[in-house]
């Protein structure tokens, strides 16, 4: 084995790595924001809106991320939506992530005792103040493990973006492999790279959880059942 291929293409690999990080972070941010909005709507909207949202969530959860990406990237133009690979990748990750984040937030909201909202309402706090000042701060601590967990999962979906030619790590390294026939070296590098990213993410998550629980959880009933299922991909 000759790992000099890696050093020879260090520049490309570095930029691929940055693209991976950027799509990951971007996808998580978009997913968290959209997911939170969806959870709040589910909390406060009428049965019709809730039903439509529920269907949307189930459909996104039932279809593979790759098919969603294809729909967005190849199917988009027929609806007048022409996206660059990068934009399609980011939006796709965001959409895919948002429904899972929405479910996490929803479980978080429902796990906080109702009485705390009632107490806030009796003191004259508005529904928004109750969500922001009473529910979200507590919920965040409760759902932190689930958030970290799904963030890791979303990171493991980013290689799929290489299929629609987003120049991220997998795309760059398989390209280098095909060009130099150094398949083994490049694939090993990919394995190590993603493994380290996943480890880094979960370590960071554990550290965050420790800090958060030291700071906040004093008596919030811990419900570990909140941790959602991991995805196989």
């Amino acid at each position: 084995m000759d790992f000099s291929v890696l050093t020879d293409h260090a520049g490309e690999i570095g930029s691929g790595f940055l693209v991976t990080i950027w799509t990951w972070v971007g996808g998580v941010l978009a997913g968290v924001i959209a997911g939170l909005i969806m959870a709040v709507i589910q909390l406060s909207a009428g049965p019709w809106v809730r039903g439509v949202l529920r269907c949307y969530i189930e459909v996104i959860r039932a279809t593979p991320f790759l098919v969603q990406l294809f729909l967005l990237y190849y199917g988009g133009p027929s609806l007048g939506l022409s996206l660059s690979p990068m934009a399609a990748g980011l939006i796709g990750l965001g959409i895919y992530g948002s429904v899972y984040f929405a479910e996490i937030f929803r479980t978080g909201f429902t796990s906080i005792p109702r009485g705390q909202q009632e107490a806030a309402a009796m003191l004259g706090m508005t529904p928004w103040q109750i969500i922001w000042r009473v529910q979200i701060p507590q919920m965040l601590v409760l759902i932190l493990p689930a958030l970290v967990n799904f963030t890791t999962i979303l990171g493991k979906e980013t290689p799929v973006l290489s299929i629609i030619t987003v120049p991220e790590l997998t795309f760059v390294l398989t390209g280098v492999g095909a060009e130099t026939f150094a398949y083994v070296e490049t694939l090993l590098a990919l394995c190590v790279g993603y493994f380290l990213l996943a480890e880094l993410c979960s370590r960071l998550g554990q550290w965050l959880e420790r800090r958060a629980s030291r700071y906040l959880t004093q008596g919030v009933q811990q419900r570990r059942a909140l941790k959602p299922r991991e995805s196989a991909a």
């Binding site: 493991k156 997998t170 492999g177 398949y183 083994v184 694939l187 394995c191 993603y194 996943a198 991909a233």
Partner: peptide, 22 residues
């Protein structure tokens, strides 16, 4: 568990697909 959960499935598939023939 941590290796096969930590490495994305696509990479695992590519690994098997490209490596075994070699």
């Amino acid at each position: 568990i941590s290796v096969f959960r930590g490495i994305p499935l696509l990479i695992q598939l590519l690994f098997i697909y490209y490596l075994l023939p070699r």
